[in-house]
């Protein structure tokens, strides 16, 4: 039996899952709104955490955060579980489906057979909604795909118990109840304040605006420090994290701009709309950085496409974003 669940394609899995789940419970928010309310925007450059032997760069908050913060800011009752035993985890999922709840699951992308082969890497932060079961087949709404898909019990079980960094351990969650009235304006304010504060006033130099500058300073010296070949691998990794499927482009900056634009209408604050425009232009600069970087990786760099030139763009992004977050804090 399938639950009547409306699948909408989104740019990012986590914001897509929560916005689709919320819609199922009568709260209609776009993906961008869910991203903003869930304080999705972020930056950190963490050289001591390695992904495929390369330093971690992230443009979004920790996995699960968008979902949790949405529930918190909107006053929705969200229940989350983890399991030790895979069989038990699958039974718990079946029970919830039988009760008519669409269930969100954290999975390892490597084990999802409907993924194009080129995107099958070991990353364990992929969120999907399971909304039905027919025998050993599950109906899945994977928000980054245009259509719903099906997956076998065996594959789903394996994906839910993927191992390695940030292992999902069978994580599942569902909305148990949602209030009839929600305070969207309040939630927007909370979302904006949290993101701006974190980006501006991070206690750690690797996070937020300081993190962008930190990356820029390091990046400028990569070729000298580790040789050109390795420097290009490092650079490629940053660009992949920025533009890979699920960001909506420009390291989530465009998605956040879309949120600000919508928020301006809801809160009737014209300033937010202007800031959305400015953040869009910063997103374009992030894209410029990616273009320059890709030219280097491809061996087509022209004389101006140096590492210091790329670092300069990042410094510019940092400076302009700093101004934006400051204004955002003053506005809300």
């Amino acid at each position: 039996m399938d639950i009547d669940f409306k699948h909408r394609q989104s740019a990012h899995c986590e914001s897509g899952v929560i916005s689709n789940l919320l819609a199922h419970h009568g709260i209609h928010l776009s993906e961008a709104m869910a991203f903003g309310i869930g304080t999705g925007l972020f930056f950190a450059y963490v050289p001591f955490i390695r992904v495929n032997n390369l330093p971690l760069t992230t443009f979004r908050s920790a996995t699960g955060d968008i979902i949790r913060k949405n529930a918190k800011h909107l006053g929705v009752r969200l229940l989350r579980y983890r399991f030790r035993d895979p069989e038990e985890a699958m039974h718990a999922l079946d029970r919830k489906l039988d009760q008519g709840y669409p269930v969100g699951c954290q999975t390892g992308g490597y084990w999802l057979p409907y993924f194009p082969e080129a995107y099958r890497f070991h990353f364990n932060m992929h969120n999907i909604v399971v909304y039905g079961r027919r025998g050993k087949e599950y109906a899945v709404s994977d928000p980054i795909f245009p259509q719903p898909v099906t997956i076998s019990r065996k594959d789903l079980r394996k994906a839910r118990f993927a191992k390695g960094a940030l292992a999902p351990k069978g994580r599942m969650y569902f909305i148990q109840s949602a209030p009839r009235e929600i305070d969207t304006v309040g939630a927007i304010h909370m979302g904006i304040r949290k993101v701006s504060r974190l980006m501006l006033k991070s206690p750690l130099p690797i996070i937020g605006i300081r993190g962008i500058r930190f990356l820029a300073n390091r990046l400028a010296h990569w070729p000298r420090k580790m040789g050109r070949e390795r420097a290009l691998l490092y650079l490629g990794q940053v660009i992949r994290m920025q533009e890979e499927i699920g960001t909506g482009g420009g390291g989530f900056r465009f998605m956040y701009s879309a949120f600000l634009q919508e928020a301006a209408q809801i809160t009737k604050k014209e300033e937010l709309s202007q800031l959305s425009g400015e953040l869009t232009r910063v997103g374009d600069r992030w894209r410029d950085f990616a273009v320059l970087g890709a030219r280097n990786c491809k061996g087509r760099a022209t004389r101006g496409d140096t590492f210091p030139a790329m670092a300069e763009i990042l410094h510019e992004c940092a400076e302009r974003e700093r101004a934006i977050y400051k204004e955002l804090l003053a506005t809300v």
Partner: peptide, 27 residues
């Protein structure tokens, strides 16, 4: 996949994209 982009009226829209050369290079 979908990208966020501004339409003619300056409003954000979800726009389908087949991919981007830059991403292909790094991938």
């Amino acid at each position: 996949e979908v990208n966020y982009a501004l339409n003619e009226n300056g409003e954000y829209e979800l726009v389908p994209s087949y991919g981007w050369e830059v991403k292909t290079v790094t991938l």
